[in-house]
């Protein structure tokens, strides 16, 4: 194996201003052409992403966070406990749990939350705060990916904030 297979899934609706931070991050990451990195974007997480997650060693879930106090944070995310409510969408922990239950795979999960402020419908573009968070996350994430690609065991120091 060449190293850990890393997947970044950015999700959100770009037509709801900062809600589109996840897809915006993925678009920029894709342009960087980082070796060994798979990227995916969608309006929301859904069950089929578990099949994709199961084919990777590390999964980074990138989403906007309207309550974040810092421009971005990256923290480990575990499997979702039973009992949480569900909708058409699935939480990152749910994706990890489905990956294990259905595909016997246990990728390490990380949640990349990028600070957003504006979530109005039919509003295009990112707010200044969201742009700041996006740039900070993009400055950090390639280093994270490079550091983790070579690690067979994805034990992590615990994420990062900026």
């Amino acid at each position: 194996m060449d190293g850990n297979r890393i997947l970044v899934i950015g999700y959100g609706n770009p037509a709801r201003a900062d809600d589109g931070l996840g897809p915006a991050l993925v678009e920029r990451l894709e342009a960087l052409g980082i070796p060994g990195l798979t990227v995916e974007s969608d309006y929301q997480l859904s069950i089929e992403h578990a099949a994709m997650a199961a084919e990777h060693d590390i999964v980074v879930f990138a989403d906007a966070d309207g309550s974040a106090s810092e421009p971005f944070y990256l923290k480990p995310v575990g499997e979702e406990p039973p009992g949480s409510f569900t909708s058409h969408s699935v939480a990152p922990g749910g994706i990890l749990r489905i990956a294990r239950s259905c595909f016997d795979a246990s990728p390490a999960g990380y949640l990349l939350g990028i600070r957003g402020e504006v979530f109005e419908p039919f509003t295009e573009g990112l707010s200044p705060a969201a742009r700041e968070g996006l740039e900070a996350a993009l400055e950090y994430l390639p280093r994270f990916i490079a550091e983790h690609r070579g690690q067979a065991d994805a034990a992590d120091p615990g994420g990062a904030t900026c």
Binding site: P82, G94, R97, C102
Partner: peptide, 18 residues
Amino acid sequence: RNIIAVAREFPKLAVQGV
């Protein structure tokens, strides 16, 4: 009341759904 419980107890069915 969620897909996670289905995946745990009826994994083949959950795989089909996914």
